[in-house]
Amino acid sequence: METQNITLLSFKIQDDLFAVDALQVDHILELPPNITAVPNTPHYMKGIINLHGNIIPVADMRLIMDKEVQDKRSDASIIVLNPSNIQDARIGILVDVVEEVIETKKEALKETITEGKKGLIEHFEGTLVFNEDFVHVINIAHLCEIIEK
């Protein structure tokens, strides 16, 4: 049987581990000193940042997941995603800690079991057991769709 390798980038929001497809990650940035707030946007929209002369919007993943924002976490980072099948859709997501790159097989993903909706996200690509932790894989296209609404 054919197996499909996947590469994931995992990150933490409070104590939960999540991951996105690493191939669609453009940059990982330290939290810049100032994010320019854009007025009259949804609460999870942190604002925009200047990435090498390009304007990148930043969404706070913690708010999207309905978690509390812990003040001044020094490890907080922005993962800049460049969704492969949507045009001009680069977006930064703000997370608590960026963890590591995980190489695995697609078959290792199990169905994610959730009680109702997890924040704004309606479904996950799957859940992976890695080093005895559960890593929930977020579908980037779905995430972008939510943010665009």
Partner: peptide, 14 residues
């Protein structure tokens, strides 16, 4: 401002 902020009518850009 890109697709995510296109509803932002009164701002034409950054």
């Amino acid at each position: 401002l890109g697709r995510y902020l296109k509803k932002q009518e009164i701002l034409s850009g950054a």
